[in-house]
């Protein structure tokens, strides 16, 4: 494991702390890691590339 220091809005921090305090997660670290994992899964570079290249094809040859 490695550590990463980040700054984020106070309001988000409060929501994060409440979420943990209410028992929905064991720690803020767990939530941030899970959120990061989900973001990276859904923003995989190969996916973005295919979406952009599809846009280029449409841009050049589309009908609208």
């Amino acid at each position: 494991m490695t550590a990463l220091s980040i700054a984020f809005p106070e309001r988000l921090r409060q929501k994060l702390d409440s979420f943990v305090a209410d028992g929905w997660a064991s720690s803020a670290d767990d939530i941030v890691v899970e959120a990061l994992r989900r973001f990276l899964d859904s923003h995989e570079p190969g996916l973005i590339e295919s979406q952009v290249m599809s846009d280029v094809e449409w841009g050049l040859k589309g009908d609208a």
């Binding site: 979406q51 952009v52 599809s54 846009d55 280029v56 449409w58 841009g59 050049l60 589309g62």
Partner: peptide, 8 residues
């Protein structure tokens, strides 16, 4: 997306 609109 934006890039498609620019190319268009």
């Amino acid at each position: 997306g934006t890039i498609g609109l620019i190319v268009r």
